[in-house]
């Protein structure tokens, strides 16, 4: 890794005017788990637990690598979770325990989502 001594303060998400290739034309149908992430964001922010600005702040604080390697709603659930922990809605320990419980239910989304 080389040291970036020319950094001017511009952050990775601030893309306007930078060079890029053709606009991609791929489109996917949103899956159920993605729609659920979207709904959790709208509901939790609508009830005042955090703001869309908080959502964006955590997305921006994730690395550029996350933008390139994670899907849109993968980044969203990571940010929703971070904001909820910061807001004190639940603790990291509670999340960790629940994620382990979820994984123990099965190896597919359908199995893991059914209690």
């Amino acid at each position: 890794m080389t040291k970036n001594t020319t950094f001017d303060g511009r952050r990775w998400h601030d893309m306007g005017g930078t060079a890029a290739g053709p606009v991609p034309t791929d489109q996917h149908d949103f899956s159920l788990w993605e729609k659920r992430v979207d709904a959790l964001m709208i509901i939790a922010s609508g009830k005042g637990h955090f703001t869309v600005d908080g959502l964006r702040r955590v997305l921006e604080d994730m690395s550029e690598d996350a933008f390139e390697t994670m899907t849109y709603y993968e980044r969203w659930i990571a940010s929703v979770n971070q904001n909820l922990i910061e807001a004190g809605v639940y603790t990291t320990a509670e999340l960790g325990q629940r994620m382990s419980d979820v994984a123990a239910r099965g190896t597919t989304y359908g199995e893991a989502a059914s209690e």
């Binding site: 659930i77 629940r98 893991a112 989502a113």
Partner: peptide, 8 residues
């Protein structure tokens, strides 16, 4: 990340 969505 799906595991996290279900847990959250």
């Amino acid at each position: 990340w799906q595991q996290m969505e279900i847990a959250v």
